[in-house]
Design a protein around this nucleic acid. Structure first.
Length: 237
DNA sequence: AAGCGCCTCAACCGCATGGGA
DNA sequence: TTCCCATGCGGTTGAGGCGCT
């Protein structure tokens, strides 16, 4: 490994905008040579008139191996919805749970498609809430969970219920208990296995780095069964 | 065919964070 | 402890594609 103090790039000479094929090829060559770190150095040594930031972004979002470039599958969409409700706009965290997908891709997908879906869902729930004389607000304007019910905060579980095709109203009417049917009992058991504190979640995240994001934590892999997802997504290399 | 508006997504920007000197 | 720099992250932008009129 060469350790050389990187000179600052000449800002005014930097290329911006879309990458050309030759630039991609050159970047791939130099990343293979120098590794996907020290991006300023890679940018400078490669002769690409791009910033280190730009090189890093191009590599992470487009050039790195094992990226998927196709449409987001229904299974992946469910995961995104679930994790967004859990974590909010933590796109990089969500991306780590979806092998081959980038935070940018997920962020774009959310903004262009899922956010609308969430808003529609909100409107439907608002209508249902009005019909029942209750106000169940599940999403804020930005798409995040509002976590209120009749003006009171509650532990969010709508993500799980939506994923399992259980209506929000069913939860509202059962005072958020999930034990009245075998299916709900199963849900309840599953929820209870969720990491109970941030440190546990953190340790699971740490064991699933970007570079080795080929597995899921136990708590989410169980959703596969719950959702009846195809196995292919979960066994990705 | 041309013009317009909307949508998508690659790329940029600015701030936060972490590590090393 | 402080400063500096590289990297990471989330929000935003804008070019190009596409469909509608």
């Amino acid at each position: 490994m060469v350790h050389e103090k990187a000179e600052p790039m000449q800002e005014e000479s930097l290329h911006k905008g879309p990458w050309h094929e030759e630039e991609d090829e050159r970047l791939i060559t130099f990343v293979k040579l120098l590794g996907s770190r020290r991006w300023d150095y890679v940018a400078r040594v490669s002769g690409l008139k791009r910033s280190g930031k730009s090189c890093r972004l191009r590599w992470l979002n487009y050039l790195r191996p094992n990226l998927k470039h196709g449409h987001i599958s229904a299974d992946e969409e469910k995961i995104i919805l679930q994790l967004h409700k859990r974590w909010g706009n933590k796109w990089s965290m969500i991306a780590r749970r979806l092998p081959g997908r980038t935070d940018n891709e997920i962020k774009n997908y959310w903004r262009t498609y899922l956010r609308k879906k969430a808003l529609i869902q909100e409107q439907e729930n608002f209508q249902l809430g009005r019909d029942n004389g209750k106000q169940l607000s599940l999403f804020q304007e930005d798409g995040s969970s509002a976590q209120t019910y009749n003006g009171e905060s509650y532990k969010p579980c709508e993500d799980i219920l939506e994923a399992g095709n259980v209506s929000y109203d069913a939860v509202a009417l059962s005072d958020y208990t999930l034990t009245s049917s075998p299916y709900q009992t199963r849900l309840s058991d599953w929820i209870s296995e969720f990491p109970s504190d941030q440190s546990e979640i953190k340790s699971q995240e740490d064991s699933n780095s970007t570079d080795s994001c080929n597995c899921y934590p136990a708590w989410i892999s169980q959703e596969n069964d719950l959702w009846g997802c195809s196995g292919s997504l979960w066994n990705m290399d």
